[in-house]
Each structure stands twice: as structure tokens, then as C-alpha cells.
Design a binder for these strands. Structure first.
Lengths: 258, 258
DNA sequence: CCCAGAAGTTCAATATATTGAACACGATTC
DNA sequence: GAATCGTGTTCAATATATTGAACTTCTGGG
């Protein structure tokens, strides 16, 4: 068997790859684009884009505003909600915290890493307000968040560097880590400790602890976090909660490991 | 201009339509499926599915577990989170309810109609528990929900009939409307009244009122609903809240109308 | 009012994906 | 241990999507 086929990664089912590229581009761009903009940006011939976008609109993948500008359609929502609901990740997460009352008073969130950001895929906001509510679908720079660090810490150093090659995110608070070197130092500490910490890096006054969730292969597939107000976060409490969080994350990992 | 092109709804860009069908099917099915299951269910030739699934896996649209079973991949999350973040609808919803406190005590939801189902795209859960929490991305049969009815009521009769040609959804409670005839009668009442009602059709003991949200062209693009417990839903209160809901929906329509 | 430019639409030739049949592989059964 | 069933993979012929060029429509300027 040959170890790699050249045609594999390149081009097959171009329509699908184009559609994915279009949706990616639409979600990366802040302003809404016109069909012609897309053609220029993605090097798609006008006529191809025409038929493709028509089908995509029919399928609910994109929507057009009055001016004909394109936006992401609602259809993907049904898939991602299912990804969340079914993905053993979230059910395991819920299951664990329904049983284990020790952590049930805290706000717990689950995110997945995408490039240099984390996307919130589940949260159980605690009764006691934090001043922050996490919303499903919300994204934050991975470098500042506990879950992001937990997931970045599991990547090879070179991969981390590669992801931030395009630039380091702008700080959210005065505590936000400023550059790749500082981030890597933090990741080293986190690896040693077994869980990661965001001490006011995303919001002043809020401390989050994060731990990695792994799949059956040991690959990190999500991050589990626990948020508390800074005043609650005494050194010993952080250690205690961190350990609990780690075991919770391990429990989730075990559940999804089969 | 011809009113309908036969080739339009039928088949174009089959690869994309197949991919969407696969993702839909995966999200509708509770267990994880194997590739062969998909072929049987969707009548896709094995070899076609092979190439398609390979590309879809590469693109992160589907994932395979160790046993080769298929699940929804993480890629759609980035799109739907962007839809949530950027969608005019959702931001208009937020904007409106941040300003207008009249309805702020109630649970308010926003859905979009897809075929015969509604998808929840935004919600502001009230403090007072309803026994039901609406989660973003959740889907319910349009025929039973207030928002679904509000959106169906705006379609031509023939279109409504066409959508349910494949069968009417199974009732969720003993109050759920049972067939197309009853639904249409209900829609007539709703049109006359200006808002629609789900009186225990989705959950016994919960009453919802729904109103349509329109875009610049007057086309209905979403449904806004207010939920309350059945005991709160006296006739006069329903009328009063219904009127307020209608004006809220009109407010949102104005925001997205430009 | 007419014209220039851009965006969008249509169409026939071509390059490409799709498909059924044949082939490998592993599990399960006898 | 041999055979069968189901699954996944490969391949060449065909049916189909893709593409550039020509055409329409619309907006904005002179």
C-alpha cells in the first residue's frame, strides 16, 4: 500500500469543498459579502458560484439579505446542536455534574478548540451570578481562556507556534497573557500542575480552571472549565477544585472512551 | 417570468445535496450509523458514499469512531456559532429585548422554519421556571409550536399542504393538532387573530403565543414566541400579551428591515 | 438621457464526478 | 477451519457538473 495518494487531499467533490470554503469564508469575514466578492476571494468562476449559491440558499446553508449580500444560513445549527447533544462529550459532562454535587454550585463550561479560538459548546451556568454568562456558540481567544490553554497545552510546541504565526490576539484585560513566549511558559506550568488557569485574563475578577478532555485515542478533543469569582479563588481552593475538575474531565474522557 | 422551473428543486449539485442529506440524517438518528446504513437509508450507491464520506471526513463534517461509525463532525459548529453571532435576526432579537422591558419577565424565543420543523435560534429564558428550557439549536415540529404556526400561516395554502405531503408529525401531547385539516383551520383562526397559539400542544401545561417576523419584502423569516404556564393564560391575558408580542415582532421586523 | 461598469444570468463544450460491477477484507456461523 | 455475509475499496464507462464567453440588467455619472 502506498502511504499517500497525491490526489487525495487535493481535489475531489469540488462542489462540496467549495461550499465548505464559502461557509468558512463567510464565517471568518465580519462584513457580509456579495457573490462577486466571494468569487474574487476564493477564485471561483462566476457561473460556478451562481449555481452553487442557488443550491446552498435552497438548502438553507446561506441566506441573502435584501441587497443580495450573503450570510450563513440556519441549517448548520441543526447539525451542530446534534453534535453537542450526541457527542458523548456533553452528555457525559451533564451526567457527571448531575451526580457530583461538589461542583454543581459552580459555572461549568465545555469548549472545543478551533485554530486559535475556543467555541463554547455547553455550559451549566450556576445560580450564583458571575457577571458573565457563557452562551453556546460564543468564542474567545484560546490563549486567554482556561479551556483554551488546557487544549493548547496538549499540542506539540511547534503546532502551538504555528497556530499563532499569524499574530497573537489582542489582550482582553490587563492580565491577559501578551505573547507566545509567555503563553508557552504558562502552558508549561499548566502541564506540570495538571490543570490550567485563567486568572482574570478574559474578565477581571473572574478566575477559571480548565482541564483537557480526551477521546479514546488520548487525543484532546475538548476542554472543561469551572469559573468562580476571584475572591473565592484562594490558593488552596484552586488546588482542590483543580484536582476535582481534572477527575471530572478524566471521568468524561473515560465515558467517551468506551 | 415563469413561476416555477422544474429543474430547480430537483437535482443540481448532487454532491452537496447528498452531503446535506447525510448530515441531516445523522442528526435525526439517535444511534451512530455505519456507512452502509446511510446508503440504505438515503439510497446512495456505496461507491458514491465512499468518496463523499472521505471528503466529508477530511473537511470535518463527519467523524468516524474507532469502529467506523459515523457522527456529525465539529466543523458545522463554527458556522452556526457565526450564524448566532452575526445573524441580523438574532442581534435584532437581543437589541429589542434589551430595550423593551415589557415582556422581559417572560420566556421569549425566536425560531426559524425549516421544512416542517422550527429551529430555536435565540431565547431569553425568564427567571420563573416553566419546566421547560429552550436550548439553541433545538427543533420541534412546526405544526405544534406557536412560532411554527405563525410562520406556516404566512405561506400559501398549497405550500403548507406540500410540506406535509410526506406525512403529518406524531403528536407530542394529547392536545397536539392531529392532521393537516385541523392545522389549516387553526391557521385560519391565527390569521384572523394576528397571532398564533400553542395551547399545550408541545408540552402539557405550557401555553405559547407566536407572531411572525418579516423582512423588508414582507416575507416571514422567523417566529417570535412567548411562553407561559397554562394557569397564567387567561383569555384576556392571552389577548393582551398577544398584542404586545405582535408589536415586539413588528419591532424586530423593523430592525432587520433596514 | 445615454453610456460605462459591475453584478448577475444563461448556454454549449469539456472536464469531472458518479455509478455498477468486480474485488478484498473481517467477522460470524456452521 | 471453511464458507458466508456484510462492509469497505477500486476501477472504467457514462452521465453530469463546471466553465468561459456572450448576454441581460441595474446603478451611477457625465
Amino acid at each position: 500500500m502506498d502511504h499517500k495518494d497525491v490526489t487525495k487531499g487535493g481535489a475531489s467533490v469540488p462542489a462540496l469543498r467549495r461550499a465548505v470554503a464559502i461557509l468558512d469564508h463567510l464565517s471568518e469575514t465580519s462584513e457580509e459579502l456579495t457573490a462577486a466578492d466571494l468569487c474574487r476571494a476564493l477564485k471561483i468562476p462566476k457561473s460556478t458560484a451562481h449555481g452553487l449559491l442557488q443550491a446552498m440558499e435552497e438548502l438553507g446553508l446561506v441566506i441573502r439579505d435584501p441587497a443580495g449580500r450573503l450570510g450563513i444560513g440556519p441549517r448548520p445549527m441543526r447539525w451542530s446542536s446534534r453534535f453537542l447533544a450526541k457527542s458523548d462529550l456533553v452528555s457525559a459532562f451533564r451526567q457527571h455534574f448531575d451526580r457530583d454535587a461538589r461542583l454543581s454550585g459552580y459555572t461549568i463550561t465545555l469548549t472545543v478548540l478551533e485554530e486559535t479560538e475556543v467555541v463554547y459548546v455547553a455550559c451549566s451556568n450556576s445560580s450564583q451570578p458571575l457577571g458573565v454568562t457563557f452562551r453556546i456558540g460564543m468564542r474567545l481567544p484560546a490563549a486567554f481562556t482556561a479551556t483554551g490553554k488546557a487544549q493548547l497545552a496538549a499540542l506539540p510546541e511547534a503546532e502551538v507556534a504555528a497556530r499563532f504565526a499569524g499574530g497573537f490576539p489582542a489582550p482582553l484585560t490587563r492580565y491577559s497573557v501578551r505573547d507566545l513566549a509567555a503563553l508557552r511558559a504558562g502552558l508549561d506550568r499548566d502541564r506540570a500542575r495538571g490543570f490550567s488557569v485563567d486568572d482574570g485574563e478574559t474578565r477581571e475578577g473572574m478566575t477559571c480552571l480548565g482541564a483537557p478532555v480526551r477521546n479514546h485515542e488520548g487525543r484532546v478533543v475538548a476542554g472543561l472549565a469551572l469559573s468562580l469569582t476571584r475572591s473565592e479563588a484562594t490558593a488552596e481552593k484552586v488546588e482542590e477544585l483543580g484536582a476535582q475538575l481534572r477527575s471530572a474531565a478524566d471521568g468524561i474522557s473515560a465515558l467517551i472512551g468506551g
